[in-house]
Amino acid sequence: MTEHGDLPGPGLQLGVLLGDGIGPEVVPAAVRVVDAALQAAGAAPVRWRELPMGAAAIASHGTPLPAETLDVLAGTDGWLLGPVDGVAYPEPFRSRLNPSGALRKHFDLYANVRPARAFGAGRALCPELDVVVVRENTEGFYADRNTHAGTGEFMPTPDVALSIGVFTRSRIERIAVTAFELARRRRRHVTIVHKANVLPLAMGLFRDVCREVAARHPDVVVDDLHMDAITVHLLRRGGDFDVVVTENMFGDILSDLTGELAGSLGTAPSLNSSDTRAAAQAAHGSAPDIAGQDVADPIAMVLSAGMLLEWLGTRRGDPALLDAAHRVSAAVRSTVAAGVCTRDLGGTASTTSYTAAVLAALADPSHHSRPLEALP
């Protein structure tokens, strides 16, 4: 990928972290689509900064997340983050917090927003699905993110393993605010997902703080479901859900489910954000079994990049960025609707040919943009 770190002008400066597995295929596809969408919208071009991360960074820098990467990212407007395959790293890196989790923790990217909207390619298990899972990203049941140093998982003896779940009022409140403000821009319905029936203190606090935030949003309908129950309801009546807010691990599981219900996990986008910065990262993993074969679906990464443009455009009040984000979503969907898609959606297109078709749609002056789902 070409680096454009010296471009003058008012455009965005975005980091690029290719990651592992299929990352070096799908992330450059997203870069090309962003560039084309910005050009079509008449927006200033991006100054891209490609930075080392993952297995390639271990080879070149001796660590999967070099300090220089963190330093440069701190000065960018956001970044595209490829998938990581931390379990394939050599020790001691395999046992440490992976680069994705480390970035979320370092920059306090507390909100993980994962929309799932059904694709009309005949593969959607729930054709009426249009839901956003809002996942708390910094604590909960994931032990790699819920302590200041080290992780919340340990073994006092070789035969006993303990894992700590952490739930704090302040962090529950801020993710709940994210969910309810998002619902106000969508269909004004939030579902709180928890397991307070068996974890009355930890998950009871999550449910109750979300309810307190709900009281400040009387224009939004609110209900709550147990984690096991919502999996059934999503399968039976997925179109009834709008915004789902839940803790870290539950959100990870539910967003995989909604991604498949929409057509394929390869189409599931994701945005990690704090109040001041955001990272676009597809919800899927690194898929090492298909890496380098030009068959990976780039849709999730491309739509994630579109979410980043939407997030930046909303915060800056920049209509050109918002227009570019809408064009990304419209081009992706119209291309699939025209029958061009990768094999996970039942098509025959390669990563390269699908991306080329999206770029052609963006270059077509008769191609009209349509709104992307409202995102924070």
Results as ranks from 00 to 15, higher is better:
230 I>W: 00
230 I>N: 10
230 I>D: 06
230 I>F: 02
231 T>L: 13
232 V>E: 05
232 V>H: 14
233 H>I: 03
234 L>F: 15
234 L>H: 08
234 L>V: 10
234 L>C: 11
235 L>S: 11
235 L>T: 10
236 R>S: 12
238 G>V: 06
239 G>K: 09
239 G>L: 12
240 D>V: 09
242 D>I: 09
244 V>M: 10
244 V>I: 15
245 V>Q: 01
246 T>A: 09
248 N>L: 04
248 N>V: 05
250 F>A: 12
251 G>R: 02
251 G>E: 01
251 G>L: 03
252 D>A: 06
252 D>Q: 01
253 I>S: 07
253 I>V: 15
253 I>N: 02
254 L>E: 01
255 S>L: 10
255 S>T: 12
256 D>M: 01
256 D>E: 08
257 L>H: 11
259 G>S: 05
261 L>K: 09
264 S>E: 02
265 L>G: 13
265 L>W: 06
265 L>S: 02
267 T>F: 13
268 A>M: 15
268 A>E: 01
269 P>T: 03
270 S>R: 00
270 S>T: 03
270 S>W: 00
271 L>F: 05
271 L>P: 06
272 N>F: 01
272 N>P: 04
273 S>H: 13
273 S>E: 14
274 S>F: 13
274 S>H: 11
275 D>P: 04
275 D>I: 12
276 T>I: 13
278 A>D: 04
280 A>L: 00
280 A>W: 03
280 A>F: 01
280 A>S: 13
282 A>Y: 00
282 A>I: 01
282 A>K: 00
282 A>Q: 03
283 A>K: 04
283 A>Y: 00
283 A>F: 00
285 G>M: 01
285 G>C: 01
286 S>Y: 05
288 P>R: 06
288 P>Q: 01
289 D>R: 11
289 D>T: 07
290 I>K: 04
291 A>I: 08
292 G>M: 05
292 G>Q: 10
292 G>T: 10
293 Q>D: 06
294 D>S: 08
294 D>K: 02
295 V>S: 13
295 V>A: 15
295 V>D: 03
298 P>I: 03
298 P>M: 08
298 P>A: 05
299 I>M: 14
300 A>L: 02
301 M>Q: 15
301 M>S: 15
302 V>N: 05
303 L>I: 12
304 S>E: 07
304 S>A: 13
306 G>D: 00
306 G>C: 00
307 M>G: 05
308 L>A: 10
309 L>N: 04
309 L>H: 08
309 L>Q: 05
309 L>E: 04
311 W>C: 14
312 L>W: 08
312 L>I: 11
312 L>V: 07
312 L>A: 14
314 T>V: 11
314 T>E: 13
314 T>P: 00
314 T>I: 08
316 R>S: 11
317 G>E: 05
317 G>W: 04
318 D>V: 07
318 D>K: 11
319 P>F: 03
321 L>P: 08
323 D>R: 15
324 A>Q: 04
324 A>S: 08
325 A>D: 06
325 A>K: 02
325 A>Q: 02
326 H>V: 02
326 H>S: 14
327 R>K: 12
327 R>A: 12
327 R>M: 07
330 A>K: 03
330 A>P: 08
331 A>Q: 10
331 A>H: 10
332 V>H: 06
333 R>S: 05
334 S>Y: 09
334 S>Q: 14
335 T>H: 06
335 T>K: 11
335 T>N: 07
336 V>K: 11
336 V>G: 09
337 A>Y: 06
338 A>L: 10
338 A>M: 05
339 G>Q: 07
339 G>F: 05
